[in-house]
Design a protein around this nucleic acid. Structure first.
Lengths: 182, 182
DNA sequence: CTCATAACAAAGTAACCAGTTACTCATGGA
DNA sequence: TCCATGAGTAACTGGTTACTTTGTTATGAG
């Protein structure tokens, strides 16, 4: 009976919780997901989840912030050693890969929808500031080009959310085709 | 005591509920909003809300579908009697006006975020199909132009959600400026 | 071996939620 | 005047929620 359970560090548990939370929050949003479900998916008790993250909202913010920061890091990696159109193109390419991970995509969309909450809004604004700064700096392109870059990203977001890549339609395919750089 | 209460038709009540629901759902999403709050805001009892709409989700779908159909109608009105770039420009102008209503904007974003749900996704896809069809037909522009049109709309959505119009930043202003047709 | 510390959970708690039952009353037509 | 129909609600139900209290056990340093 005395099964000797080995313990993990709090940091390892936090990691597991963040992973589980990403799955739940991405599908159900802040209010739709339950801390109990997340705790179970992470393999810990629900009280311990609260010990690790304080409140549900703090966990949510940690989860979403991480997801969005991954985009920043991917852009940095993709653009390293490149400039101008080259850099922009590389970041664009990396983005299509990023949002094929629907978990990350939907977490971002949850954030946009949740922007009525000041904490969520602040978090999103901070990441976007860094993102825009990075893209402007590494590409050196004028505002019109930068806006088009982000605009096409946002369109791909919703097309992907609608699952128009997995379950295509003629009109969806036309929109996707129109996103390719000519 | 016998205060003679005048009664409204079910249709009038439905209207009141849809209005109240738009406010709540836009801010809190499907799971964050409570049927009790919506009913109180609409001036009816919570059981009667269920009599009128069956389930919370049906009410949600009715609310969001209406919000998105208003976009279609606005586009139709704006483009009437116009063609080509003219029509496209008129619809673009009308869109900036439409999403200044943050309630409608956020309802749409809630839908995008909620696309994991098949019913929500189907509803969004239907409206988009009509929207794309309308814009393609009335403008007659090629896919690249159509995509750019919707892309800029989606970018304006998130910029507005972040409240970058009410509470501006340099980087936000640059993105907004880059959206203007040159 | 000792003991402080950190990992972890069982069992609550109070509030809230979607949805139901069972009922009252107003209205308009015959 | 009667009554069928539709408008409307008080009171409840079974379940879930975020979060707490209180405790136990593993672990690593001295």
């Amino acid at each position: 009976m005395s099964t000797t359970t080995t313990r993990q560090t709090a940091e390892e548990r936090r990691e597991a919780v963040l992973t589980a939370a990403a799955g739940e929050f991405s599908r159900q949003g802040l209010h739709g997901a339950s801390t109990d479900t997340i705790a179970k998916a992470a393999g810990i008790s629900q009280p311990y989840l609260f010990r690790l993250f304080g409140t549900k909202k703090e966990l949510y913010l940690a989860t979403t912030a991480r997801a969005m920061e991954e985009i920043y890091q991917a852009f940095e990696r993709a653009s390293r050693g490149k400039r101008g159109e080259d850099a922009l193109h590389a970041m664009g390419e990396s983005y299509t890969g990023l949002i094929e991970n629907r978990e990350r995509l939907q977490l971002m969309l949850q954030c946009f929808a949740g922007c009525d909450d000041p904490d969520v809004r602040e978090s999103v604004r901070r990441v976007w500031q860094e993102l825009v700064d990075l893209v402007e700096r590494t590409s050196g392109e004028p505002p019109e080009v930068i806006s088009t870059f982000f605009a096409k990203g946002m369109l791909l977001n919703v097309l992907n959310a609608m699952q128009l890549f997995d379950d295509p339609t003629p009109w969806g395919d036309r929109l996707i085709a129109g996103c390719e750089p000519s």
